[in-house]
Amino acid sequence: MEYRLHTPLAQQEILRLRAGDRVLLTGTVYTARDAAHQRLIACLDQGAPLPFPLSDSVIYYAGPTPEAPDQVIGSAGPTTSGRMDSYTPRLLEQGLRVMIGKGDRSPAVRESIRRWGAVYLAAPGGAGALLAACVENVRLICWEDLGCEAIRELQVRDMPLLVAIDSEGQDLYTEGPAAYLSHRDEK
């Protein structure tokens, strides 16, 4: 299936997504990767306010290149999501429901996605120039000292994504290769 979705995503919209579905996403996403995740968790530990609300938000594991004067953003593809695995269950527990990145997740994250009815979407890895064209506006939210790892709010239009792990815990990173191999070996 292919869906055009707008943020914030309704719970029902998230629940009907199945691993392998294509999504064109329009709306607001927040970039956060390794160092920003560490600080988000520190905020939770200290009971400090978060720089953006986790509920109804989309986190994009990305650290774009700096924009040239005539550009909105530089190259802006996904980074490896697995490095955020140790932080993710805590954020899901706090209301996060949509993550965008690339690469597979730990069994704990998969289980957590299932438990909270969340979804993990994959953006094409190593296609940052193409993805930059989907970004219409960028605003620095906080932690500028982290450079490319600062949290930025991106307005995206028709960002091309694939459902990698759905709310039932189905995982395209295991099912995709298995489907290809069984098709190949039948021949």
């Binding site: 990305a62 650290g63 774009p64 290149t65 040239a68 550009q71 530089g74 190259s75 802006a76 593809g77 980074t79 094409p124 190593g126 296609a127 940052g128 120039a129 193409l130 930059a132 064209a133 490319c148």
Partner: peptide, 16 residues
Amino acid sequence: ENLDAARQRCLPICQD
């Protein structure tokens, strides 16, 4: 397509 976009828009092929 990404390689074409990088060339046309003078962007790095990948953000890393």
